[in-house]
């Protein structure tokens, strides 16, 4: 059960209509290392992970939906009121024939989202290591989008999202330490 707060986690601003940038950003919407994949992966793994770290997966999975909503807002603003010609020039003509200007869960190349992007192995260490890898890959994807983007307002939001990947990665690394159960023991060598 969730409560919904009718605001974004971080304000989203976009300087100009730029459907080409929107095409790149879609990678974080419905791509393999995107926010949808992250949210579904963590919230699904919650059920079979040891109780000590269920809350962490719950909180991070929930936050990923807040990020998904930010990405959706960015894509929407970048393409809002763009003419079919502008959409076509940005390489989104094939998106337009299928979806008009509606958002859809696909990656930057238009490949639709698939559950094969995520995994639930049932082994707590295997699952948490996958989660750490997912955060690092999402961080890298944000870096490459920032490199391609010339919109300073958009980049402000993207830098925020990149930092969240870093914090999440740290939390998953801490979860592994908790499951190793060596933290409070005195270390002798």
């Amino acid at each position: 059960m969730w409560y919904y707060e009718k605001k974004l986690q971080y304000p989203v601003k976009v300087r100009e209509c730029n459907p080409r940038l929107a095409k790149f950003l879609i990678e974080q919407y419905g791509g393999a290392d995107g926010e949808l994949a992250a949210a579904l992966r963590y919230l699904n793994q919650r059920y079979t992970i040891p109780d000590k770290v269920i809350g962490l997966l719950n909180d991070i999975g929930t936050e990923e939906f807040a990020h998904l909503e930010m990405i959706a807002t960015m894509v929407y603003k970048l393409t809002k009121d763009a003419t079919p010609e502008q959409i076509k020039a940005a390489g989104l003509g094939d998106h337009y024939v299928n979806h008009d200007s509606a958002l859809f869960y696909s990656n930057a190349s238009g490949v639709p989202f698939t559950a094969t992007y995520i995994q639930a192995k049932g082994d707590p260490i295997a699952d948490l290591y996958e989660d750490i890898a997912a955060e690092e890959k999402a961080r890298a994807t944000y870096q490459w989008i920032i490199d391609l983007s010339d919109d300073p307002d958009l980049n402000d939001g993207l830098k925020y999202l990149r930092e969240r990947e870093i914090v999440h990665s740290l939390r998953f690394r801490e979860a592994v330490e908790i499951l190793k159960e060596e933290r409070d023991k005195k270390q002798f060598y």
């Binding site: 971080y10 944000y142 870096q143 920032i146 830098k159 925020y160 999202l161 990149r162 930092e163 969240r164 870093i166 914090v167 740290l170």
Partner: peptide
């Protein structure tokens, strides 16, 4: 994007 300066990473 974080409460702690020690966790901040510039890009």
């Amino acid at each position: 994007g974080t409460l702690w300066p020690d966790l901040f990473s510039p890009y």
